[in-house]
Design a protein around this nucleic acid. Sequence first.
DNA 1: GACAATATCTCGCTCAGCGAGATTATTGAT
DNA 2: ATCAATAATCTCGCTGAGCGAGATATTGTC
Lengths: 157, 157
Amino acid sequence: MANDVHEQDAGMRVVHLLRAITVELDRIGEGFAARHALHPTDVRALICLLDAARTGAPATPGILGAHLGLNSAGTTAVIDRLERLGHVRRERDTQDRRRVLLKVDESAVALGWSFFGPLIHEIVAVMGRFDAADQATVERFLGDVNEAVARQRTGRG
Amino acid sequence: MANDVHEQDAGMRVVHLLRAITVELDRIGEGFAARHALHPTDVRALICLLDAARTGAPATPGILGAHLGLNSAGTTAVIDRLERLGHVRRERDTQDRRRVLLKVDESAVALGWSFFGPLIHEIVAVMGRFDAADQATVERFLGDVNEAVARQRTGRG
DNA sequence: GACAATATCTCGCTCAGCGAGATTATTGAT
DNA sequence: ATCAATAATCTCGCTGAGCGAGATATTGTC
């Protein structure tokens, strides 16, 4: 990916670290999925639904499908799987009876915490070993990288 | 995932930033796959093979399959797809004739650069806007996070 | 009320990846 | 040298995730 002249550069080392972290997080997700009879897509769906529940945003099959990049048939299948496992239930929206509202069960919330809890704790602990000024530096850097990466995606794909 | 009392915390904001970056990078990978008639798994395989080519490490179906978490049948299928597209070719290892060495074509290297090049450039540019001390802080933080995340994975699954 | 738009679901299909086992090459023991 | 055990890869048949097309029900518009 880089010839070894550039490997010396701090920028390149950081790129590789970010990639390594991404790979590790993906693998944790896969491992979690495998241990709970879920597919990686189901885990992503759960994350999306838990986020919606946390922020109070409405969750519907349409919104979920758009977020996951699935068509309506695939989205129905994901929800069927999660419903079969008792993590989610469908409720007709009384305002607009075409729509279905997706409600996550308490078991799914607990599952989410069992997954993210230790991970969050670890990262917060790492952060705690830095002083306030360095924490601000890290936060600013990650914010900038996030913007840059998002710009790359929306710009090219 | 977090109740909103903790949202204020710099640690939690950093956790969310890391997650956002991970999601964005995954989406870029998916977009790249879709635009080149590849599956996400094929992209991961290409990355693995390009890394091996770059570091001079030998690449075989067995190593690739282990890296991707596929069994031998699935690994054969991935290599078949990449070979059909001309990105990879199989060569019998003359030392141990049970083994097949996977050689990436120049077109695959070019493809990899077209994917990672702009992304790397963007992140290096972000890094360049920080002074040397702050770059060192960022690098140390990411290294620690990487270790912590890797420890999480190997410790729990 | 007729009609286009919207949200979801059903049906049939393709193909990624799995399990089981076949094939070929290597290694080690006798 | 011979032969069993091991290793690396591939083949075959199957399951199931996700897609395209279209069916169904609800809403807003004229």
